[in-house]
Design a protein around this nucleic acid. Sequence first.
DNA 1: CCAGCGAGGTGGTCGGACCACTATGGCTCG
DNA 2: CGAGCCATAGTGGTCCGACCACCTCGCTGG
Lengths: 241, 241
Amino acid sequence: MADTGEAQNGVGAPQKGTVTQRAIERIKAMIAEGRLEPGQRLPTERDLAVQLGMSRSSMREAIRALTVLGVLEARHGSGIYVTQLEAGDLLETFGVVADLSRGPQVVELLEVRRVLESTATALAAARITPDQLAEVEKHLTAMNATDDPEEILAHDLAFHRVIAGAAGNDTMAAILEGLSSRTFRARVWRGYEEEGAFARTRREHAAIHRALVARDPEAARAAAAAHVGEVEEWLRSQLGA
Amino acid sequence: MADTGEAQNGVGAPQKGTVTQRAIERIKAMIAEGRLEPGQRLPTERDLAVQLGMSRSSMREAIRALTVLGVLEARHGSGIYVTQLEAGDLLETFGVVADLSRGPQVVELLEVRRVLESTATALAAARITPDQLAEVEKHLTAMNATDDPEEILAHDLAFHRVIAGAAGNDTMAAILEGLSSRTFRARVWRGYEEEGAFARTRREHAAIHRALVARDPEAARAAAAAHVGEVEEWLRSQLGA
DNA sequence: CCAGCGAGGTGGTCGGACCACTATGGCTCG
DNA sequence: CGAGCCATAGTGGTCCGACCACCTCGCTGG
């Protein structure tokens, strides 16, 4: 009687929340406990559904959710796999936050970016390799050689991406990547570029580059903070107007 | 050619990715474009499925995914609503990242936390209100009055949460909240506490509190950075061993 | 020995049925 | 007349079974 007909698995059927939510927690727990290794293949949807005592539909919703979170990866016709669980996989959803933020929240995000970007740039000044520095220069010159906003933005993103990568903290780089996602930057730039910001941006990028060449962390931190802070202040003033 | 034009619907379906993935993008776009406001109620699952030309099952997977991301909220028997899209809603998933990270990635996460926490604490030193300061003191004394690790951890979390809140950047506070999620802290503490870290933690918290009282941002930044850095270094040494 | 092909297995989609819960309105009872 | 209860319609939650699209791997035939 009292038994809700749960599977052979332990007794404590918490019965909390929806069935799908429970499935999500269970799978997450399996990974956290090490019972599922990165890259490993999971049982089939049908088997998993039976194991956790639910329908395939509910199990699919759980899998879909974990797929969107970057925890699982479904390969049509092959199976479901655990991702490598690296920073890039898990922090991809950060871009969604940036895309859906608005108003004051965008300023807050820029403030976070300023803090992280300045730190990453400072670290890069101390650790960047000649190869990476060459790539930074490549994007810097390419950015100065064109007037196409689209292209400038692309090189701008790459410029900072290389620097973030040179900082040696993949997690920080992944977060910054999300905070600079294409649509986010495009949204902020729309209007900002009309105030002769290109010239200023080029000057600021040049300053960051100089600091990297000089391997001067403090100068790099200051230059990066000023760079992001510039946009931040402009956006703050826009909200007031 | 010139086929990428993709009309509304009819026959020219984009056909990119899975049906569910398309639904996710569509709904996200509707919100980003302002056609769906925070708090607003969406059409029923059944109607949405018809509108986007797909089955209810696929639509449900899309909704579930967006629910997990903190973008939508489903109320059983009532309907589906857009969340307030505030930092807390969208950054809840950050906890998942912290929970599933391991090894070197945990160190990187702590490095990010050190940077943000020190900045937040510095900001708090300048902005904290008497009420908030009183609450900080409450958790500080409560933390010193017990030896139950569970309770200490709870007050430790609350201590930093109040400070992060006083910094005035909800987004930053939400990220720090995810970086200090219960299971994450518990995982790191297990073992750390065995090295007489309680006394050191209490001393560090006291230093942070003193800086807040003195309204000294630089001292607060240094104290917070040292506090997190302490754990960071210990964990780094553990990985080498 | 290898290339090609076919069958089986896997995730992806669909449609329908039923359950659990909520909200709304009218109806009863005080 | 008003407050409270309750029937009901509508919503999300769950389950089932079928079929499709795609990948994999072993088998066959050259």
